[in-house]
Computed example of a mutant assay.
Amino acid sequence: MRKERVGLILVVLVLFLWVGTGVSEGKSVLRASPSRVKPGETILLRFSGAPGNNTDWIAIYPVGEKSENYGEWYYLEGKTSGELNFTAPQKEGDYEFHLFANWPEGEYNAITISNAIRIGVSIGTSPTPYNDVFRLSTGELITGELLSFDGSTFKIKTETRVIERKKGDVVAILIGTKPLTPTKPFTPIRSLSQWATKVKASSQYSPSGWSAQQATGEPNTSECGDIDTAWAPKSNGSESEWLELAFDTPVYATKLRVHETYNAGFLYKVEFVDVYGRKHTVWQGKDTTACPGWFEINVDQTWYLVKSVILHTQIKGYEEIDAVELTGIPISK
């Protein structure tokens, strides 16, 4: 039996990821080479798809560093594509390049991050080349090296020739994902399935039982029923509600599963939220999930990185969600 209602305490845990300024469809690209260098040697950085502001800028960072902890940097002076030469820092370690838009308005919000490179005194002179991977709208995967992107056309160097593909034909790009090995075929990129770790909601029954937090983590409600280990909204009326769940690793999403454990069949819309905060409706319709049961949607791999999902619900009574799982391809450095 449902216990007496308590006052609503809305628990909001917000996932912060970089918000881009003036980025075009999330397809700005940075490509650093070689992948292994010694301190003081030259690093070639190719960039493309930059916003085109005079004060767009690129800086080198130790991997994992943000904000003001950057090294050598350059303004792009309105260029949307081109090449820059950087000098490898004297301190050994892994480094990457960050692209920022329109300083100072864009602040330190990186809109694109390059593949990682390793700097060390004991590194040999023959670097290991890495694949860039391009997924086309047809489902085809092209592996090679991105040479340039002028805003409309990708120029890609494969093992046999240089090819060009139009922007509209490329739905996802993964930079520097796998070593090129001439004796072995390309290994397919491994997908990642993960449970939600952070959440916010339109309402929740209480800050403990039936709270929004109950929808994070692995499933722990095995039966259909009014059970406090799942999320339930404040009201048992027929008003629409929503639940936004964030994940630790942004992915190019391919699948979503939602464990419904009471009054199943309440979903009417699902949105993916990319790393720039933009919402994408990926499903809208009639939910026919049994109770308990898994609502499941499979989508073509998104061209954008998904950081969270928004579940829109509506039913007379208490809808309850136990767990949410997102599957997709993480970007590799």
Rank of each mutant, 00 (worst) to 15 (best):
L99M: 04
K167M: 04
A232H: 11
T112R: 14
P39K: 10
N220E: 12
T313K: 11
F47Y: 12
F100I: 02
W283S: 04
P330V: 06
D94Q: 15
P179C: 04
C224H: 06
D150Q: 05
F295V: 02
V309E: 09
I60Y: 00
I173L: 14
S137P: 00
V273R: 10
I315H: 09
N85V: 01
W231C: 05
Y70F: 14
K255G: 05
D228P: 14
L13R: 15
L326V: 05
P292V: 07
G26H: 01
G120H: 07
I123F: 11
S114G: 01
R161V: 13
Y252K: 13
V11F: 13
Y108E: 03
A32W: 08
G265E: 05
V299I: 15
S206L: 03
T125L: 12
G139W: 01
G265M: 07
N298T: 15
I9S: 11
S122R: 15
S81A: 11
G93K: 07
G317E: 09
D56R: 03
T55N: 10
G82D: 06
R36I: 05
F86Y: 12
G7W: 13
V14Q: 14
G106C: 07
W195M: 09
E244L: 01
S308N: 11
L30G: 06
K307H: 14
L84Q: 07
L147M: 08
G317Q: 11
Q214V: 00
A50G: 00
I297L: 08
Q90F: 06
K166H: 11
S208R: 02
V299A: 13
P51G: 01
E68L: 07
Y70S: 03
V63Y: 10
Y262E: 12
N220F: 02
V275R: 10
G7C: 07
Q194M: 10
I189E: 13
P89T: 04
S193D: 01
G26M: 05
K27G: 02
L10T: 14
T187Q: 12
T229I: 06
T197A: 11
Y70H: 11
G22V: 02
I321T: 09
F295M: 07
A212N: 07
V19Q: 14
I111H: 12
T221Y: 08
E320L: 14
V6S: 10
V171H: 06
N54A: 08
W73D: 12
T281P: 08
S126K: 14
I111N: 01
I175R: 15
K155E: 15
A110D: 01
T281I: 13
L192G: 12
P185L: 10
A253S: 13
M1P: 14
R2D: 10
V14A: 13
Q214N: 09
V12L: 08
